[in-house]
């Protein structure tokens, strides 16, 4: 495959085809782990590793998977990779692993991983499949890091644990917004992020639903 095609396979998912803001894939974990930048970074690294390795493996054996049981095979491959990542995190980063609790295991059912292997890795040779997975993993990481930075900066006045805005407790002027550390703010921030992206790229705006809801198109 030519270089420009590979390049666009890598860069398209960053903003233009971002898996989180456009395709509604993998939001589950994207919101839960973004209370601080450190957990968001760990989660992004774990997910990117799983999606790239999973795409490579599935693409290597793509001619040998019977299509009737392909979902089960893909899930078993992904689950094995997730177990490896989980054990590595528990061994080397026990502190962060405890904060992430069940969410590392939940990468197994992350729609992003299965979605990429089902729609791309299953049909393409290993190199483009892994590049596509890397692009999607990075697009996911980008969203996580943006939301994680905003939540940590305004919720605790720090970034990656370093104090940026001196809080009132420490004699500074900044009163932390506790709402930023709670669940609702993640929804609001992601909604705002989607709005911002779509204002810059109007091509992503969804068609208005003027038809009555009974006949509206169904999306799965």
């Amino acid at each position: 495959m030519a270089r420009p095609a590979l390049w666009s396979v890598l860069t398209d998912p960053l903003v233009r085809q971002n898996p989180v803001t456009l395709q509604i894939l993998g939001i589950c974990s994207a919101l839960a782990v973004t209370t601080s930048v450190a957990t968001a970074l760990t989660m992004s690294a774990a997910l990117t590793a799983v999606v790239v390795m999973g795409a490579g493996l599935i693409s290597l054996i793509r001619h040998h998977i019977p299509s009737a049981i392909r979902l089960i095979i893909q899930i078993v491959i992904i689950a094995s990779l997730v177990i490896v990542i989980d054990q590595v995190l528990q061994a080397f980063l026990p502190e962060i692993s405890r904060k992430l609790s069940v969410f590392v295991s939940l990468i197994t059912t992350n729609c992003l991983v299965l979605g990429r292997s089902e729609s791309f890795a299953r049909l393409n040779p290993p190199v483009p499949a892994m590049v596509d997975a890397l692009g999607n993993g990075l697009g996911y990481s980008l969203v996580l890091i943006v939301i994680g930075s905003i939540r940590e900066l305004f919720g605790a006045g720090s970034l990656l644990g370093y104090q940026i805005l001196p809080t009132v407790d420490q004699g500074g002027w900044f009163t932390p917004l506790n709402l930023m550390l709670l669940a609702p703010s993640a929804f609001f921030l992601l909604g705002g992020l989607v709005w911002a992206v779509r204002s810059v790229l109007p091509a992503q705006v969804e068609a208005p639903e003027h038809t009555p809801p009974d006949s509206a198109g169904e999306r799965t």
């Binding site: 803001t21 509604i24 609702p184 703010s185 993640a186 929804f187 609001f188 992601l190 909604g191 705002g192 989607v194 709005w195 911002a196 992206v197 779509r198 204002s199 109007p202 705006v205 969804e206 208005p208």
Partner: peptide, 15 residues
């Protein structure tokens, strides 16, 4: 607003 239609407003409502 155009950019908020669909996914964006759904997140705000869920929030």
């Amino acid at each position: 607003p155009d950019g908020l239609r669909g996914l964006g407003i759904t997140f705000v409502i869920a929030g």
